[in-house]
Amino acid sequence: MREQLEQLKSGALQAIAASSSVEALQDIRINLLGRKGELTALMKGLGTLDAAERPVVGQLVNSVRDEIESALVSALESAQQNVIAARLQTERIDTSLPGRRAQKGTKHPVSLVIEEICSIFAGLGFSVAEGPEIEHDWYNFEALNFPPEHPARDMQDTFFVENSLLLRTHTSPVQIRTMLKQKPPVRIIAPGTVYRCDSDATHSPMFHQIEGLMVDSKVTFGDLKGILTVFTNQLFGQKTGVRLRPSYFPFTEPSAEVDIACVICGGKGCRVCKNSGWLEILGAGMVDPEVYRHVQYDAENISGFAFGMGIERIAMLKYGISDMRLLFENDVRFLRQF
């Protein structure tokens, strides 16, 4: 029996050493240690031995089995390592091929800019208001202190619809609609589509504006300057210079054009800023008392400011777009870049 065990052991160890594949080693395990394996068979024979010999041989069997087992484990381990190594040797993909991605769509740059501006003003406590695009002359002009036949109406070429309706030429009528609906404090911005009867390289008959309005008990022109400085710095970068200069709008007084230091040349002067170093981006001013009169606000005890800007202009500056018409051609080769 001892001899048999020794023989079995040396045969097994040889076989294990000679096997390199996982499958062959698994076979060896089954053939020796399985239910019908050789060692198992020998162990079953223990019962026929003398009671005195039995523990000794039993121990021997166990040690042979342990030896074989541990040889198998380490051989299997290295066989598995070899398998992995072999896989790593051969398995190759071309990682430079494009990935399988979910198609990405894009928002129109006008929507992007509107969203960005609205979120900046949301942070300053302004909520979003809206109004109709087909508007009454009264809201678009008269209540904003453009009397009929006033030369200021020449500033805005108007598309007319019948019955004193027109396509709003600016988002300012939303100011009127808001103030008629609510009492101060008012803090709104109104993004929207507007129309002017004008079409060339720099004018589109349809474009977009954002209007802002703040009315409260002690709002100053300095506050307007403060709010617009914060806004332009958030939109164009912290150090963007801002300049207000006198201008005229019938519905604000004092009125201002607001320039920012040219985002293209940084104020040194270039083609985009016509060498002035400044870019005009919005119009603003303190709400004119005449406007308050039309919405039955008491001009003596409240004050406020309004401002308005063209979205396309800002989109063009932000993204370096040179021709406004690109924004309405809807060429996906353009739109997919956003």
């Binding site: 406590g125 100053t220 300095g222 300057k225 403060g226 914060v230």
Partner: peptide, 22 residues
């Protein structure tokens, strides 16, 4: 407006409004 204009818009300090919370 004439006061603001002649005195200079650049001389107006930029301030943040003191506003009621809405």
């Amino acid at each position: 407006e004439e006061i603001a204009r002649l005195n200079g818009y650049d001389k107006i300090p930029a301030t943040m409004p003191v506003a009621r919370v809405v």
